[in-house]
Simulated assay, not measured.
Amino acid sequence: MVQRYGMAPHFPGLTTGSCPAQPITACNHPAEILGKSEKFRNYYRGTNTGRRLSWQTKMGTVDLKATFGKGQKHELNVSTYQMCVLMLFNNAGQLSYKEIEQATGIPASDLKRSEPVTQSLACDKGKNVLRKEPISKDIADTDTFLFNDKFTSKFFKVKIGTVVAQRETEPENQETRQRVEEDRKPLIEAAIVGITKARSVMNHNNIVAEVTKQLQSRFPPNPVVIEKRVVSLIEREFLGRDKGDRKLYRYLAQKECIVS
């Protein structure tokens, strides 16, 4: 499959290590990929019942055959996201950042911030298979990208890695911490409910100790956050204070529902 710039994907074999539990990420696959992915989807559905197949486009790698100026050929090892961007240049001489974002559907957080796909393709010296105008290390909405037909390498196979993301600003750090805290709330509450259900009645210090012990392999829960989740569970009547000793918390058996 050779098109304008001779870029055609070849996929390495799937392994169980390529399929960890991750949030589902989506982007628009190139037309050359859609037929093959649909054929595999039909095969998978035909050999597996009761299972769902989801594409983790944020993960995995692709071997991309590319032809540059004067017919120089290389095999680029790129991420799936990078492949989706590069394949656009089979049919375009240059593209703006906004055009790439719209065509691929890759979230801006991955395209230019947390794992900057465009930056790794255009700004990594010695591996810049794209050119960016204006020349700078930062990616802006007004930037334009061109296929670098003057790209050269002494190696036939070239691995295009992902550049280190820019340092987050303090507001971004605070937003990240808030998202992490929100994601941890259900886990902390589930641990509290499970522990108090097994023990029926527990005091506050024991709850904090047991929750910390149970979750420490995943993350170190903050005692202040645990206390807030206990209060929240009391307000929602998953737990109740003991009438004789308000320092004791009692699991309310009538609230048989899942904490989420």
Score class of each variant (00 low, 15 high):
Glu99Phe: 01
Ala92Met: 01
Met87His: 01
Ser79Met: 07
Val85Leu: 09
Glu99Arg: 02
Asn77Leu: 15
Met83Pro: 08
Tyr97Met: 02
Lys73Ala: 14
Gly93Asn: 10
Ala103Lys: 02
Ile100Gly: 01
Phe89Trp: 06
Tyr97Lys: 06
Leu76Gly: 07
Asn90Val: 00
Gln82Lys: 14
Thr104Ile: 06
Gly93Met: 01
Lys70Glu: 07
Leu95Ile: 05
Lys70Pro: 04
Phe89His: 02
Ser79Phe: 07
Gly105Phe: 13
Leu86Tyr: 15
Ser96Pro: 02
Gln72Trp: 14
Val78Gly: 12
Tyr81His: 10
Cys84Asn: 08
Thr104His: 14
Asn90Gln: 01
Met83Asp: 08
Met83Trp: 14
Met87Arg: 00
Ser79Gln: 14
Gln72Thr: 15
Tyr97Trp: 13
Tyr81Asn: 05
Gln94Val: 03
Val78Ile: 10
Cys84Gln: 05
Tyr97Val: 00
Ala103Val: 00
Thr104Asn: 08
Ser79Arg: 10
Leu88Pro: 03
Asn90Pro: 01
Glu99Thr: 04
Ala92Asn: 03
Glu101Pro: 01
Thr80Pro: 10
Lys98Cys: 02
Gln72His: 13
Gly71Leu: 14
Gly105Ser: 06
Gln72Asp: 15
Met87Glu: 04
Leu88Gly: 04
Ala103Pro: 00
Gln94Lys: 10
Asn91Thr: 11
Thr104Trp: 14
Ala92Trp: 03
Ser96Arg: 09
Ser79Leu: 09
Phe89Val: 00
Leu88His: 03
Asn77His: 15
Gly93Asp: 10
Val85Tyr: 13
Lys73Leu: 14
Lys70Gln: 09
Lys70Met: 02
Glu101Met: 06
Asn91Phe: 12
Leu88Ala: 05
Gln94Asp: 12
Cys84Tyr: 09
Glu99Leu: 00
Thr104Gly: 14
Glu99Trp: 07
Asn77Lys: 15
Glu75Leu: 15
Thr80Gln: 13
His74Met: 14
Thr80Phe: 11
Ile100Ala: 01
Asn90Arg: 05
Phe89Gln: 07
Leu95Lys: 06
Met83Tyr: 09
Asn91His: 11
Thr80Trp: 14
His74Pro: 06
Asn77Tyr: 11
Gly71Ser: 09
Gly105Cys: 13
Lys98Ser: 05
Cys84Val: 09
Met87Ser: 03
Gly105Val: 09
His74Asp: 09
Asn77Ile: 11
Ser79Cys: 10
